[in-house]
Nucleic acid binder design. Structure first.
Lengths: 231, 231
DNA sequence: CCAAGGCAAGAGCACTGCTCTCGTTTTTGT
DNA sequence: ACAAAAACGAGAGCAGTGCTCTTGCCTTGG
């Protein structure tokens, strides 16, 4: 909080960062299952019990990594949107953001697995991760919103049985969205991560070869479902 | 192989099955991360080292569970298709099969996570699981094939940059499919599991409430992308 | 300046996957 | 039918894990 903090406090934040960094390193190499508190401590030249001053348990370390990872993917999405060329249409922005998320996932498969793979313990982080988790989706939502504002939105109709859910959903996540757009958006959100997960988790092995082109084609289709048209 | 096998051989298959059964039980309760060989052995009244006569390692036990799980979801899909009413259109069959996969996943979340969540070790099963893994997708492919045969197929066009990939893909997975259908089918396949994974892994918590209706709406949309029309 | 609290270290507990050895039992080859 | 070979269960043991507790040191705040 303050620029000049006590030496002890500074040491604490530094060591905490070092622990997370080393944990992230081991996570990338061995995967979440084999992430070992003792190994992290060993590599940092401290004894394992000392590490518990910083993280009360292994799961808390993992939760911290999850929060950071959500932030990282959110930042990648935000950066991609910000760097989109000025004249870019909504669909082009959409594709660029999706590509950024995919590339982050491919570059950090184990961290991605922490976020969108199997939930490791019982339930790790209920509320703490909610805010950073929303960053990436907020970017895509903003694009849909812009498309909506400039009438670049066209969406399929919602079946009657789902109309109540659609209205409730719109009210919850984006009150300015028409219910049909809200439903379409959630669909697309989940489907996007189906595409990324299949690629990251190896299900496209010996199936899809030109993966980036395939991905772009797919998310262009998804943009249509979310109602994000071209220019 | 033979109906009358030696007592030893019969005991072996029985014990192997008992081990997998108990492992599956523990998997459902605690999750894959905490599945313990020793706990399984303990529950079965044998010593842990004896278990290694049946599975060379913990990962091999997991691989066996994965194979069985692929078979289970494949069987669920096949059954749903077989039980579809006689006059059912292609789209209705499609939805029923998707629902069956989803319901299996919701009923066996930990086993589902083994298949479509984070790949646990490095890579567990390369070729062994390929055949059972294909069962479910084969069912959906058959529906698309039937739709194709009765001209119930209409699919978006493939961009030029992806045309080569589309042809190669069609030749690999379904030579009787037009390239555009093959591409659309793979897209839909991945997106379907995005929907299921988000629901099973809890990403729809406090987002989607009427989940079955939402799912049906979503997979009806996917049917369209795969080119499977109504009646 | 001194008590209070944060800190690192070590020992220790209960648990894990896995290996090896050692008798016993079943199957197999002659 | 008998001996050799293979399969098996039990136990001890190794290296590793998450986590707790106690013991001193040292930086803080009053």
């Amino acid at each position: 909080m303050s620029a000049t903090q006590g030496a002890r406090e500074r040491a604490r934040t530094e060591i905490t960062a070092a622990i997370k960094e080393e944990a992230r390193r081991q996570l990338a190499v061995e995967g979440a299952a084999k992430l070992s508190l003792r190994a992290v401590a060993r590599e940092l030249g401290m004894v394992s019990s000392a590490l518990y001053r910083y993280f009360p348990s292994r799961d808390d370390l993992l939760t911290a990594l999850i929060t950071d990872a959500y932030d990282a993917v959110g930042e990648a999405a935000e950066k991609a949107d910000a760097e989109a060329p000025d004249g870019a249409g909504h669909r082009e922005r959409w594709v660029q953001v999706c590509l950024a998320v995919r590339e982050w996932a491919l570059a950090h498969p184990q961290e991605y697995a922490l976020l969108y793979g199997s939930p490791v313990p019982g339930y790790s982080a209920p509320q703490t991760t909610a805010v950073p988790a929303a960053r990436a989706v907020t970017v895509l939502m903003a694009i849909a919103r812009d498309a909506h504002g400039s009438r670049g939105l066209a969406v399929e109709r919602v079946p009657v049985g789902l109309r109540g859910e659609a209205e409730r959903l719109a009210a919850d996540i984006a009150p300015d969205f028409p219910p049909a757009v809200a439903i379409g958006f959630v669909k697309v959100w989940a489907e996007l991560f189906g595409l990324i997960s299949f690629e990251v988790f190896g299900h496209f092995h010996r199936v899809v070869e030109e993966r980036e082109a395939f991905f772009v084609h797919a998310v262009e289709g998804l943009a249509g479902v979310a109602g994000v048209l071209g220019e």
